[in-house]
């Protein structure tokens, strides 16, 4: 029988939409990044000057550091605690199910709603300080969102609270791929809990771990909503993140070229990190 040829028409709608609204804008961003442009008047080609400025910009450097601080703490926290939690609720009981449901709730809520709730809790005249007053602990009252140093801690707490359940679920899915017989074999060999974890669980969940790490890195590097709503990057520049910086350079300062240059660098960085982690973890998988 003559095999009917598959029509490219099937891929065409997706191709057109994807190209028009995603690929072309990305290419435009690359092009803008080589120009000095306020988005309105004539463009002026300046080569890689914007990119040189990216590496000289102190305020951006500060945003990069903030983003890295937030990312590193959140990534470590949600991955360690997420794995631990996943192991605790990795049973088929009703109890475990309830806990899973609860831990996952924050992740389905919009960051806007979450940020406002936390803002109302952490504000100076908010719920937390109100509670402290009620319990007669006025000495502990703090200006959580408004002081140098503590604002970024608030952001970190909210991010951990928001994404913990998600990473727990990722690890849970990974744990469920570990065959039960292996644990039994380990017990027979006289292995204790730690041995089981180190020699059975850990090697087998490396793929899940890669995914969890990757997702947390990508999410935290793109961090914007929570910061925008809770502190608006403040006080001062204390909680400005990379994406916050890009948006304010591009939209408020109308430095379209420059902000495009930053976002191109971010794009490349995320790409490089993703590739690096995937290959590194693949090696680990083999070693273990």
């Amino acid at each position: 029988m003559k095999k009917k040829r598959m029509s490219i028409g099937f891929a065409a709608p997706a191709f057109v939409i994807y190209t028009m609204l995603l690929v072309i804008p990305i290419m435009m961003a690359f092009y803008f990044s080589l120009n000095k442009w306020n988005g309105f008047n004539a463009m002026q080609f300046i080569g890689i000057e914007n990119y040189i400025n990216v590496f000289r910009d102190a305020r951006l450097g500060n945003a990069v550091i903030n983003t890295l601080i937030i990312s590193v703490v959140v990534i470590i926290f949600v991955n360690v605690l997420g794995l631990f939690l996943a192991m605790l609720v990795n049973t088929a009981s009703v109890k475990s199910n309830i806990f899973r449901t609860i831990f996952f709730i924050p992740f389905v809520l919009s960051t806007v709603a979450i940020s406002f709730v936390w803002k109302s809790i952490l504000s100076y005249n908010g719920v937390l300080n109100g509670m402290l007053t009620t319990f007669g602990q006025e000495g502990l009252i703090g200006n959580w969102l408004g002081s140098h140093g503590s604002a970024i801690v608030c952001i970190i707490i909210v991010e951990i609270w928001r994404t913990l359940g998600y990473h727990m679920m990722l690890y849970l899915a990974a744990l469920q791929t570990v065959p039960h017989e292996l644990y039994e074999a380990c017990t027979v060999d006289g292995g204790n809990r730690w041995n089981k974890f180190r020699h059975v669980t850990l090697p087998l969940i490396v793929p899940g771990m890669t995914v969890s790490f990757l997702m947390s890195i990508i999410n935290e590097l793109r961090m914007y909503d929570v910061v925008k709503i809770m502190t608006d990057g403040g006080p001062g520049y204390d909680t400005e993140t990379i994406v916050y910086n890009i948006v304010s350079q591009g939209f408020s300062n109308s430095m379209v070229g420059y902000s495009s240059a930053i976002s191109v660098v971010l794009f490349l960085a995320i790409g490089a990190i993703s590739v690096f982690i995937v290959t590194k973890m693949n090696q680990k998988e083999v070693e273990m």
Binding site: R5, S7, G9, F10, A12
Partner: peptide, 18 residues
Amino acid sequence: MKKRKALTAIALSAALVA
């Protein structure tokens, strides 16, 4: 025949977007 269908599909999707 097939080619025509392919073209129709492309045209359709283009028309959709357009």
